[in-house]
Design a protein around this nucleic acid. Structure first.
Lengths: 223, 223
DNA sequence: CGAAGTATTGAGACGTCTCAAAATTAGTGG
DNA sequence: CCACTAATTTTGAGACGTCTCAATACTTCG
């Protein structure tokens, strides 16, 4: 930490590697800790920093004037978020649980990108990943049933946070619902349905630890 | 047309200008014409070209296995589409009406971007625009009512295709519905409702020419 | 063990979808 | 220009899925 981005380039790994492979980080300016529920940045606030989740989990969302909320993405350990092209953030970001993030000044990133085509390529690649996720999520929100949405959610989380073993979801039902365009009751009913069908198990003492018993059963629901 | 991108750079305007301001185009390899309904490229086909609408209109969509369709975007005159970072297209693109598109080989674009940071910046900027649109559309699909969706659609089309005067929608109700995550009947009912309220007028002999009588009435519905 | 927060379950309301019919528009050839 | 047909849009009525509101159960944490 605290290594200036303008330091001798030979002394640190390429930025490209740090951004795209999330290898050990050296250019990040500092770490910050946020308590569960704390806001990291607000929608339309100036986007001066780019963030990476070191520990915990983050939700990014938009609000309508009457409080309806749409979560656009969950950011898990290793994920980079808050990267903007324009001057302001387009989402509000909040810590879902106690969370540690790393920050890098956005300007320094852009300066590096200016000089280094491979870094610029990485920024584009990250933006493209976000776009791809959003495109798939539009299909989910516009055309899938509640059961299909929950199945897709479980597969996504399984892929992203439990390479092997139990999936411990960091978020409440309400967050899942606002991510999937449903109510928390409908999410709960869909999970119960999947449980009854033997496709998932709840384990331990908490309803937020889930074991996928039948991934192909889920995948079938994901059309 | 037919000017090679590797031709003497002094002889043509900067690529950056052509891409971002859509000024008169010289680097495009060729033009193609597609009949109404014709497929321009399919989902997961190799993405060898980037396209610009010269005349007409295009829809980009994804399908579920049982035929449910989500249109991710409409591309109108001047819009660039089919720009990918990975090897394949992520949508199917079809001509909504008889359409003329300009093509440029993707590789040549990337070669220019490699050498020219400003062009690379433009590619990022275009991808960011697409991302921003998708983010707003997620909010619409996840959390807005049918009336709000249709209102938002009309405001978007008004902004994009009728700088002054009548809005002549190129697409059918079904396309609007698949863009908004509704059925065509629900779209039709919402339009009738807006008509009764005096917010929009249908004019001429066709229901696809619409005049906004009360933009602020629409904007209010758009929360 | 008690209290607060979270999740599940139930019953009815509501909005959108489905299916069907009528109305309107667009296209074609006389 | 009109008649005829096909395609699209509108409108209606009922079905269905999700939402709302409420009660109960479970989990967490002091």
């Amino acid at each position: 930490m605290f290594v200036n981005v303008n330091a001798d380039r030979a002394r640190r790994p390429r930025l490209v590697g740090e951004l795209s492979t999330l290898s050990p980080v050296q250019i990040f300016l500092s770490e910050y800790k946020y308590r569960r529920g704390a806001e990291i940045f607000g929608e339309s606030e100036p986007a001066d920093y780019v963030y990476q989740v070191a520990e915990g989990a983050v939700r990014s969302y938009k609000l309508l004037s009457d409080g309806r909320r749409q979560i656009g993405a969950f950011h898990l350990v290793g994920d980079i978020f808050g990267l903007e092209n324009g001057p302001a953030h387009r989402f509000t970001a909040e810590a879902i649980v106690d969370t540690i993030v790393r920050l890098v000044k956005r300007i320094s990133l852009e300066q590096v990108a200016e000089a280094d085509a491979l870094v610029a390529r990485d920024l584009l690649s990250m933006t493209t990943s976000n776009l791809q996720h959003a495109e798939n999520h539009m299909l989910l929100l516009g055309r899938k049933t509640s059961l299909e949405r929950v199945a897709a959610f479980l597969l996504e989380m399984d892929r992203r946070l439990s390479p092997a073993g139990v999936m411990a979801l960091p978020m409440y039902r309400r967050d899942i619902a606002d991510y999937l365009g449903l109510t928390l009751e409908t999410v709960s009913r869909a999970l119960s349905c999947l449980h009854e069908k033997g496709i998932i198990d709840f384990i331990g003492q908490t309803q937020r630890q889930i074991v996928l018993r039948n991934r192909s059963g889920l995948a079938k629901l994901d059309s």
